[in-house]
């Protein structure tokens, strides 16, 4: 079976003045894969992710996301991806229902579609009674689940998650990952950054960035075998120690 790639990156770089934030990275992400994108603070993860989301124009190299070129078709890229970060996800001063309407509208879904999908989403999360609740007053764990569901509300091919699970209790954090599993089982590709190394183990494949380069890319099992260590935490330590960039 020929594998289908939904993200293809070849020699992608981004330079700010003299500083090469992302230095010639190449990789592919398979359809339906959970792809972990790890690296120390300052290694270039955020810059790389912004390029893949069509928010920042690369200095050189090639990249297609969901089949669209990030230079020439950044609007189509944006329409075919979902995005969630811990810093921004939902509008606090809108109700749950209003957030759904707003996001659906931005992604040009019809009113009928929005209504139908909202009912389904709220029922699935058990949030039907919260439709009129201000997002501000929801517990953090609920917000994160809702934010993730919203990020895939328009059925994107890929969802980008930038440190999505920080700050919640251990049970909620795991329930959140179960939503991610379910999305991946439905064929949505998940591209995720995290500082929790146990979450790196939940990924099908993991890349680790050091000083703008991708220093390792494989399944967690293979990486552990390669570095002859017992956990992804130790793999990360072994690689990140080689960094020379002072953040």
């Amino acid at each position: 079976m020929k594998e289908k790639f939904v993200i293809e990156v070849d020699g992608l770089s981004k330079q700010f003045g003299n500083f090469v934030a992302v230095n010639h990275i190449s990789f592919q992400v398979k359809e339906g894969e959970i792809f972990g994108f790890l690296g120390a603070n300052g290694a270039g993860k955020t810059t790389a992710m912004r390029m893949l989301c069509g928010l920042s124009v690369p200095t050189s190299g090639h990249a297609t996301v969901a089949g669209y070129d990030v230079y020439r078709q950044s609007e189509q890229v944006k329409r075919n991806i979902g995005y969630m970060s811990q810093k921004f996800a939902l509008y606090d001063d809108l109700t749950v229902g209003e957030n759904l309407k707003l996001f659906g509208g931005i992604y040009r879904m019809s009113r009928h579609q929005i209504r139908q999908k909202s009912d389904h989403l709220l029922a699935e999360l058990g949030f039907t009674a919260e439709r009129g609740t201000m997002v501000r007053s929801l517990p953090l764990g609920w917000k994160q689940k809702l934010a993730f569901s919203l990020a895939i509300f328009h059925d994107p091919k890929i969802v980008f998650l930038d440190e999505p699970s920080g700050g919640v209790d251990p049970i909620t954090r795991r329930q959140f990952w179960e939503l991610i599993y379910r999305a991946a089982d439905r064929g949505i590709t998940v591209f995720v950054t995290t500082h929790y190394m146990d979450e790196a183990e939940y990924c099908d494949r993991v890349s680790i960035m050091v000083d703008g380069h991708i220093k390792a890319l494989d399944s967690p099992a293979m990486l552990k075998q390669m570095f002859q260590v017992g956990s992804m935490y130790d793999v990360f330590l072994a690689l990140a120690r080689t960094a020379t960039r002072s953040e």
């Binding site: 690296g39 120390a40 603070n41 920080g166 700050g167 500082h195 990360f236 330590l237 990140a240 120690r241």
Partner: peptide, 10 residues
């Protein structure tokens, strides 16, 4: 250490 990578946290 919130939001800090594992090496810096260590």
């Amino acid at each position: 250490t919130t939001g800090v990578d594992p090496v810096s946290r260590k």
